[in-house]
Design a protein around this nucleic acid. Structure first.
Lengths: 143, 143
DNA sequence: ATGTTTATTGTAATGATAACAAATCTTTAA
DNA sequence: TTAAAGATTTGTTATCATTACAATAAACAT
């Protein structure tokens, strides 16, 4: 997971019916190599140096396409910033209110929508909000 | 819960250390009587006829204050629209992708953040996305 | 009453995303 | 090979929710 070849990236895109343009490869690669749940802007800022002609609109279009093709997942953990995750399997997230980082939590079972409700859940998001150990330490130091 | 007197509203505000102005009473009342997880705009639009001088900024300020005083809860279920809930106890939400309504699910236990992670969760949001029974029926009719 | 704090208001600024149309690249078929 | 058609990218502009800010108004305390 940590390292994935460009070949694999291209393969995955093709399998999903997405023609592998330079830009799309770049965005998908970035997501594969940086499991930081980046926003569209973070992706754009990070790729810009290597792809000077890249446009922000392309990043938005590409991410929307990837989501539609189920190549990636939206993480709606905070209003006003859509984040993206290459791991489309269910897992929970924790957002630290100090460092603002989003941490993966893989060991929590997926909660199920009660069947009596007649609601058909297609996806599930479980988000925790709080403070991480590091930041808690720093805050206690200060006071 | 369905019906709450103005007196109770005023009491609750005072208890939380919020001086009960007309506008604050109106917003808190609206939330108490309309468990629809409204956005700031919905609240503003709904109250405007009765409070013609009400400003949108006041609605935003008031909601922010209520959240800070833990009188209400933010429901971050979709990017670009903050929703608000007078029920501050944990419960899950279901958003239908057709009618866009947000439905409460009270019977799901609150998932716990594993203690090994050293993360201290202060709040938890569990959101399901899918289609409700009514909308599913309508869609099937059409095809 | 008068000065001080608090709340409300309207306008303007911000920032993320989407719409749109023009430009470029790719593919297809003659 | 080349020209048309289709897909992709780009830059600009528009939109929409939210916030910042400064001025007004109301409530409170001396």
């Amino acid at each position: 997971m940590a390292d994935i070849t460009k070949q694999k990236i291209v393969e995955q895109l093709k399998e999903a019916g997405v023609s592998p343009s330079e830009q799309r490869i770049a965005v998908f690669s970035f997501l594969h190599h940086n499991h930081i749940h980046p926003t569209a802007d973070t992706i754009y800022q990070s790729l810009s140096p290597d792809y000077p002609t890249l446009s922000k609109t392309t990043v938005y279009n590409t991410l929307k396409l990837f989501v539609a093709k189920r190549l990636i997942q939206v993480v709606a953990i905070e209003d006003g910033e859509l984040r993206f995750d290459v791991n489309t399997d269910f897992h929970a997230h924790f957002k630290c209110r100090e460092c603002l980082e989003v941490i993966d939590l893989f060991d929590i079972p997926e909660p199920q929508c009660p069947t009596e409700t007649q609601l058909i859940a297609e996806s599930t998001q479980l988000n925790f909000y709080g403070i991480c150990d590091q930041c808690k330490g720093k805050l206690e130091e200060q006071s």
